[in-house]
């Protein structure tokens, strides 16, 4: 006795409408692969290139009532970004990080579309000029890549260094934005 797609969608919508869900997630297709996106009632809280242990991770971070459900606003803004029609995101965010990472991610959000910056400069703007390495770690753990554009942060030499989605993805995002960088 299988639940029909329609009945399933009806339940998921009712669950969200009643405010019973701690965190919703969805999968968005993109030119850099499937993006796993998640949001709480407060806003977008995760974008991930991988989905291993995804539900468990969401449960740990936001509560056990994890439910897949369409995140249309997130999908639309990401689609527009990848089509080159959107240069910044209007989505509310639910960031749950400590003080310094929050300061760094706040500064990161201000790095303009199509430009790059370095770990060191970002550290300085967040108030700790010698914390370039810590900033590297914070970029590496960025809970909402793309929307918080850690792909725009490069090494002091201009080299791409690391990226959670892989260097190839970082290169493609910068190319899409028309940024200048060392290949």
């Amino acid at each position: 006795m299988n639940v029909t797609t329609e009945l399933d969608a009806q339940f998921r919508a009712a669950a969200v409408a009643e405010g019973l869900v701690d965190v919703r997630y969805d999968v968005v297709a993109s030119p850099v692969g499937e993006l796993h996106v998640a949001a709480t009632g407060r806003g977008l809280c995760r974008i991930s290139y991988r989905d291993d242990n995804w539900q468990e991770e969401l449960a740990r971070g936001f509560g056990v009532r994890v439910l897949r459900s369409p995140l249309d606003d997130v999908r639309r803004e990401l689609d527009e970004y990848f089509e080159g029609r959107r240069r910044s995101f209007d989505l509310p965010l639910d960031l749950r990080v400590a003080e310094f990472p929050a300061a760094v991610l706040h500064e990161l959000a201000r790095v303009p579309y199509g430009q790059t910056d370095t770990y060191g400069k970002l550290a300085a703007r967040a108030g700790r000029p010698r914390a370039a390495r810590a900033v590297g770690t914070i970029m590496n753990r960025n809970p909402i890549p793309i929307v918080l554009p850690c792909h725009r942060i490069v090494g002091a030499s201009g080299a791409l260094t690391g990226y959670a989605g892989g260097l190839e993805v970082k290169r493609r995002l910068l190319e899409l934005e028309g940024a200048m960088f060392k290949a």
Binding site: N2, D8, Q55, V64, R65, V66, L67, R68
Partner: peptide, 17 residues
């Protein structure tokens, strides 16, 4: 307690039956 989605997918069909 598993994430709700996992619990739901595991039981939704037999509960409907």
């Amino acid at each position: 307690v598993p994430p709700f989605e996992r619990f739901y997918l595991m039981h939704r069909d037999e509960v409907l039956g």
